[in-house]
Amino acid sequence: MATETPAGELVDRLLAGNRRAAGQVISRIEDESPDVESIMRGIFPHTGNAYVVGITGPPGAGKSTVVDELIRVIRASGKRIGVVAVDPNSPFSGGAILGDRIRMMRHSSDTGVFIRSMGARGHLGGLALAARNTILVLDAMGFEVVLVETVGVGQSELEIAGTADTVALVVAPGMGDGVQAIKAGIMEIADIFVVNKADHPQANKTVADIRDLLRMEIAPRAWTPPIVKTVAIRNEGLEDLWIRTRQHRQYLERSGELENRRKLRLEAEILEIADRRLREQVLEPSTETEEFQQLLDRVVHRETDPYAVADRIVPRPGLGGV
């Protein structure tokens, strides 16, 4: 068996634009290999340039086709594009058939496009972390736009969508649960609504339903999400979607919201890293002592309480430093 390429060498090669190295780095991220941290540190100084667009929505809405067409539109402006297609579908076996890429295969002969499929796998650190780091890899590679496709269900999916600067929520009319599906928490993070398959007789009703939902929102929005109609399989409406995306970006930049959002995300990321370290280095080891086990038994027998034991691991504010 060949020896593993050192992380530093892979990072150098990917920063020089080598796709093979980029592909391998993403695999290490997905595998949660021990050298991910050093890889990400090597990459980080070269990131922050890509504009990240999340494309999310229920299965069957036509997200992959929208992404495929959006690639075409964006490529026409000469920008290089990275795509992360997240497909959380996993049956009991843990295996998966990742098929989102099929609809985008025509771009596989274009060196300005890099498409990576990602399954759920049961990532210990979360699918969201793997997706986020993959976006950073593509960013560092010099892809100016990164599209992230996810099915808008589940917590980690929401987290991934939350990583994007602009989130487009794709729905299709006549799906029965089309607008229903929106209500499940993703409504709030959508910056643009896309009604795909807009040649469907019920398309206008879907648009009206979304308007109604927006009107019923309690918290006011500084940015009013536009509703874009597309027929992705007939190449219709995608230019409009890209214009709206750029308008949203301009709004974010002008209002200072972009910097603000990115800053908040980095803060969250720092906390997440620190949180994981705290858990791994302090919290989890502290449960492995004999003393802790004895205390736990006492809690079980109601001789003491969980708060008192927690105080011994992390002192309550006012009780002094750690």
Binding site: P91, G94, G95, I97, R101, S117, G119, R121
Partner: peptide
């Protein structure tokens, strides 16, 4: 897939 592999078609 049923054998636990990730398949990209």
């Amino acid at each position: 897939r049923d054998a636990g592999m990730e398949v990209i078609y």
